[in-house]
Design a protein around this nucleic acid. Sequence first.
DNA 1: TGCCTGCCTTGATCCATATCAAATGGAAAA
DNA 2: TTTTCCATTTGATATGGATCAAGGCAGGCA
Lengths: 211, 211
Amino acid sequence: MKYYRSFEAGQTVIWSGDKMDFVASVVSGVATLTKTMEDGRRQMVGLLLPSDFVGRPGRAHAAYDVTALTDLVMCCFRKAPFEEMMNTTPHVSQRLLEMTLDELDAAREWMQLLGRKTAREKIASLLAIIARRDASLGLRPAKGKVAFDLALTREQMSDYLGLTLETVSRQMSALKRDGTIVLASKRRIEIPHFDALLAETGDDNDGGVLT
Amino acid sequence: MKYYRSFEAGQTVIWSGDKMDFVASVVSGVATLTKTMEDGRRQMVGLLLPSDFVGRPGRAHAAYDVTALTDLVMCCFRKAPFEEMMNTTPHVSQRLLEMTLDELDAAREWMQLLGRKTAREKIASLLAIIARRDASLGLRPAKGKVAFDLALTREQMSDYLGLTLETVSRQMSALKRDGTIVLASKRRIEIPHFDALLAETGDDNDGGVLT
DNA sequence: TGCCTGCCTTGATCCATATCAAATGGAAAA
DNA sequence: TTTTCCATTTGATATGGATCAAGGCAGGCA
C-alpha cells in the first residue's frame, strides 16, 4: 500500500494527463506543479515542499506536470486503499482539508501577484516567500541579515512569475544595484535588510506580526 | 446556529480583515472574492456560485473582500457549532475537501490565464467559462448557438482578468468584429460557434469530452 | 421632454516587458 | 590546460497593454 520513490533534480515525476493510480506526499526535497500550453508557454502553479500532498482522491489522471526541483523523495500510497482509509479515519480528510485550504490561500496570493504586480514586485515577492519559508525552520527573518541558496534557475523563476527569463535577470540585477539583495554567487542570495525587500513586494506590511 | 442573509447586487458582504464568526454558503446569486492592494490595484481571486462555500474553519478574520455581484442569499452557520459538526460528522469535511480541491483546480487554471495568456485569450477564456457554467444547467454548449447575460461590468471583467477596463472593451470589440461573439446588447452575448470561441482561448481542446 | 449619471467605446500616446541577438562566466569534461 | 556546455547577463529593438482623454449611449429621474 505504501512505498517510497526517489527522483533526481530535474527529473519528471509525472506528466499531465498520465494515468496516476497513487497519491503521494513529499518526504524531502522540492517539486513543482506546472501547466504547459500547446505552444510551449508554461506557468508554474504550485510548489511542493516536504509534507505537501499531490494527487486527488477520485481522479485517475494527473492534472499537472510534476517535476523534481531538487533531489526528491516521495511517499506514495495506492489510491484505492488510501480512499478506503479516508472513509474509516475521519481525521485524514480533516487534515487534508486544512492543507488544501492553505494551498488555496497561497494560490490566491499568487493570482494577485500574477495579475497585478510589476516585474520588480514579483521578484521581490518570490524572494521574500523563499526567505521566509527557509527561515521558518527556526529563526525570525524580519530583523538582521538573511541568506539562502536559490534552488530555482532564472527560467524556473520566470515560469513561476509569468515573466521571461531575461526580465527576471534584469530585475535581479536592478535589486542588486539598489542594494536590496547581495549576490554572493549566482545562486547564493543575501538580504541585508529584510524589511527593505518586503517594501518592494507591493504587499501591505502594516498587518505584519509584531511579536 | 443557522440563518439566512440577503444582499443586493453591489453590496459588500464582508471586508478583508473583518472579524468573521460564521461560515456560509451561497444559496442563490453570485459573489466575488477580491484582493486589494494599498494603492488600489485589485485582483478578483474567486467567484462564488450557488452551493459554494466561504470562510475557513479555524480562522477568525476574512482573508478577502466578498461582494455581491447579483442579488444574493447566503446561508450562514456560526463557526463554533459548525466546527463541532465537522468533528462529529465525517462526511462534512470530506465534502468540503472535494469542493476545496475543485476550487484549487480552478485557481490554478486561473493562474495560467493570468500569467501566460494574451488579453484576447483571457477574454475568450472568461466567456467560455461563463457560457459553460450557465450551460451546465442541462444543455451541451459545444454545438450550436449559445447565449447568456453577462453579470459582470467591464471593470469587473478587468479585475478578474488582470487587465484594464479599456483593454477589455477593445478586445470585446475585436471579438465582435471577427464574428466570434455577437453583442445583442452590451450585456447580452451570443456565441454563434462555440468551437470558434474555444479556439481563441489558447487552451488545449484535443482533450475535450467526445461523448 | 430633456438632462443626468453610469457604463462603455474609441483614439492617441507611452512605457514595461517581450523578443531577438550576442557576449560573459563558471563548472564539468576532455 | 583547453574545450564545451549551460546558465546568466546585457544590449537593441519591438510591441501589447496601460494610461490619459474625449465622446457616445441608454435608462432613470426631474
